[in-house]
Design a protein around this nucleic acid. Structure first.
Lengths: 224, 224
DNA sequence: GGTTCCATGACAGTTGTGTGACAAATCAGG
DNA sequence: CCTGATTTGTCACACAACTGTCATGGAACC
């Protein structure tokens, strides 16, 4: 279910929004200050954030800027002020949309849907990826194959995580080099070598890989 | 430079929008009907589309639906009607934002920026194209025929993707040479050869193709 | 019936990939 | 701080797969 965090200091408005959102099928919860909003979103990230601009203490603009430092969640500003200057400032700060109170819940809901449709399907750091008989858990830092712990090196582990986060999708050598090694340039054969080593450890028959497959001319892909 | 396509039948409004957008640093151009808008966007894709809802002939909703079939460009509706029903319908049809006329150009510009910011996170055009019993998935880098995996080479894959992205439309050998191989010049027979090889793999009866058909003197087309 | 356009098989050259060897870098433990 | 073990990145080679060219024959058009 889609979770929405509402940050609004006016108790009545906040409650009304929460009820309406639940009516629309969201899991909604709210806080009254930006400070609480930051804390809450870090502890238990929602899929969307609705925020008022005029808040006691830290205001909405500052909240957006702070949240944006490490969160890419779609943010919608819900404000009473219909003022171009505010709208521009909020969007510049990192908000994705701006609606003016009073807002029709159907419209708000449609805007949230449009945002999620457009937004990155943020792979919330899950505890583990399961690919066939393979289990990769970034948290625990371990790889299991049919329940058996497989010793992999750090680089192999990162590479496997990257592939596991995009199961079924091809990743080019360049993308892997970029994401695993942070190299913008460099010899792509490096990837081959590590893929080869990884295969020795996680494949039944490394010469005929079933999970970590090559797509000639495209890159590598992890599949079930 | 960021290009913006404006679809608006009122000459004065369209002109005013175009001028204001250019003032903001965009390359802006406009058309008066949805039909022209589709054509224009296909021939020379803009980075953003602004569209009015009330248009002569095909209306804005239908325009959005049609464009969305093969284009993921951010679409902003610019309408005189401030009506929840319209807003929801437009967003559901595939629009990304909805602003009400008269619109402050600074706000519009900020909304366009916000959309592009979110839009370019991942270049994930479409997860897969389905053409009859054929399924082409650029992401997974695979082609399936009635669910069965079909092994294709890189060039064949790119060629098929290009054709699949424009189902039902003829692509000339030159266009294909340009888009698949990046050749501005070269022997067009090359395309024939690869089309032939592709047919061997994806057609029931390669000599009488049902999907990858030849249009004598024009080029090739992929159809259902 | 002539002409243009297209399909296809063969083939040689090119490209892409897997792998073993090796040296440099890093790490762990005393 | 030293030492041995592990990990990492580079290289070269071999092999398989792919690509582009060409020639031939056939189909469609006028």
């Amino acid at each position: 279910m889609t979770a929405v965090l509402v940050i609004e200091d006016d108790d009545r408005i906040r409650l009304a929004l929460l009820l309406a959102l639940e009516e629309e099928g969201y899991r909604a919860y709210g806080v009254a200050t930006a400070e609480e909003g930051l804390q809450r979103q870090r502890a238990d990230p929602a899929d969307n954030v609705l925020v008022d601009l005029m808040l006691p203490g830290m205001d909405g603009f500052e909240y957006i800027r702070q949240l944006r430092r490490d969160d890419d969640v779609p943010i919608v500003v819900v404000s009473a002020r219909d003022d171009t200057h505010d709208i521009v400032a909020a969007l510049e700060a990192g908000a994705d949309d701006y609606v003016v109170k009073p807002v029709a819940i159907k419209e708000l809901s449609a805007r949230l849907r449009a945002l999620r449709r457009r937004g990155r399907v943020e792979t919330t750091p899950v505890s583990s990826h399961v690919v066939g008989e393979l289990e990769v858990s970034p948290e625990a830092g371990e790889v299991r194959r049919a329940g058996q712990l497989v010793p992999v090196t750090r680089t192999e582990f990162r590479l496997l995580c990257e592939l596991a986060e995009h199961v079924g999708r091809v990743l080019s050598r360049r993308q892997l080099l970029q994401r695993v090694w942070g190299y913008d340039t460099g010899d792509e054969r490096l990837v081959d070598v590590h893929v080869g080593r990884l295969r020795q450890k996680i494949e039944d028959d490394p010469a005929n890989p079933r999970h970590l497959v090559t797509l000639r001319g495209l890159g590598y892909k992890l599949q079930r």
